[in-house]
């Protein structure tokens, strides 16, 4: 073959050479036709089909009673433990070997006393309690608005979580997956991988003021699972909150009302806007928890649009007293 290629055109081809060359040309033509056939498409650029995930339901099995435990006290560790114990203990919520993700509010580059993020002591208390149920892993994560490294470090949450035995995980640019939230407004959105891979999710929001929707509480805390064009959610914030609360059903919510940001939220910055309540509200009804928390901020939950939406969608009850609650001090 190689020798025949070196010959000039005047050279005669013998039959064998002719057959070989013809076969080679036919194979080449067939190959080109085959590639054209296989790659033929109406789309100018080929992309791998994107996998659309769905968020699992993380809710605890069986009926949890009471659905709300409101605890007043000074020590977050005893308060959190007492609250969860009254609801049946942590083993009702977490089974050995499960992967647990804990979602505090770590949105801002603020110090613990400025009350713009969840109290690190509450994060540590929840992690400690969860460790008792012998999960396979405990991850503390959030999608921060300020630089995430600064947020986790300066809020004290990294140190608190790691000392209590959890792993802090900050999603990078490639750690978001498209998930169908199946909401009225929010359909397919990029969601932090941690929540798609978890067995159990615990929400630890805090009580704080928010200019646009009045307050930022348990349901609003689910903004922190999203990547992408999150800043557009403000255009219809109430439906967005209700959609997120419907898509993300946590195993347990532990509301941090040890101290709250009463004004200039959600970023705060001044100690004058911080008020101490020394309260923890644990529960499985985020709407009821938010409702109680709005009371602390001096707002009327019945007039808040997203609360009404969530109640209508069966996510919980605004009248928290009807949810089945206990209130005590430790």
């Amino acid at each position: 073959m190689t020798s025949s290629l070196r010959k000039t055109e005047q050279d005669m081809l013998d039959r064998r050479q002719f057959m070989k060359r013809a076969a080679g040309l036919c194979a080449g033509a067939a190959g080109a036709a085959g590639v054209s056939w296989i790659a033929s498409s109406d789309a100018p650029v080929r992309h791998a089909a994107e996998k659309i995930y769905t968020l699992p339901t993380f809710g605890a099995e069986g009926t949890i009673h009471p659905r709300l435990a409101i605890v007043h006290g000074a020590d977050p560790v005893t308060m959190v433990k007492a609250a969860v114990d009254r609801m049946g203990g942590i083993t009702r919520f977490i089974k050995p070997g499960e992967k647990v993700v804990i979602k505090p509010n770590v949105a801002w580059d603020r110090l613990p006393e400025q009350a713009a993020n969840t109290n690190p002591l509450v994060v540590a208390a929840v992690v400690q309690l969860v460790m008792e149920a012998r999960p396979s892993s405990v991850v503390v994560t959030d999608v921060s608005l300020n630089d995430p490294l600064r947020c986790f470090d300066r809020s004290g949450i990294r140190q608190a979580a790691e000392q209590a035995g959890a792993k802090v995980w900050i999603p990078g640019a490639n750690d978001f997956r498209s998930a169908n939230l199946d909401g009225e407004l929010l359909k397919v959105w990029p969601v932090s991988r941690a929540f798609l891979e978890a067995d159990r999710v615990i929400n630890i929001p805090m009580v704080k003021h928010h200019s646009l929707c009045g307050s930022s509480l348990a349901q609003k805390n689910w903004y922190g699972i999203l990547g992408g064009r999150r800043n557009q959610l403000h255009q219809n914030i109430h439906t967005s909150i209700a959609d997120l609360a419907g898509a993300m059903r946590p195993t347990l919510t532990v509301m941090d009302a040890t101290r709250s940001l009463m004004a200039n939220g959600p970023t705060g910055g001044s100690l004058n806007d911080v008020k101490v309540f020394d309260t923890i509200i644990a529960g499985t009804d985020e709407v009821a928890i938010d409702s109680y928390s709005m009371g602390l901020l001096g707002a009327d939950p019945a007039t808040v649009e997203f609360m009404e939406m969530s109640q209508k969608r069966g996510l919980g009850v605004i009248d928290w007293r009807s949810a089945g609650f206990v209130e005590f001090s430790v």
Binding site: D109, S211, L212, H234, Q235, I237, N264, P266, T267
Partner: peptide, 26 residues
Amino acid sequence: CLPWAMNVECIVCEEVCPTSPKAIWF
């Protein structure tokens, strides 16, 4: 600006403004 030009609710700028009191007000 969405509120000013299009009557669309927004004020993300106010939410993220880090000063206390916020430099962006409404």
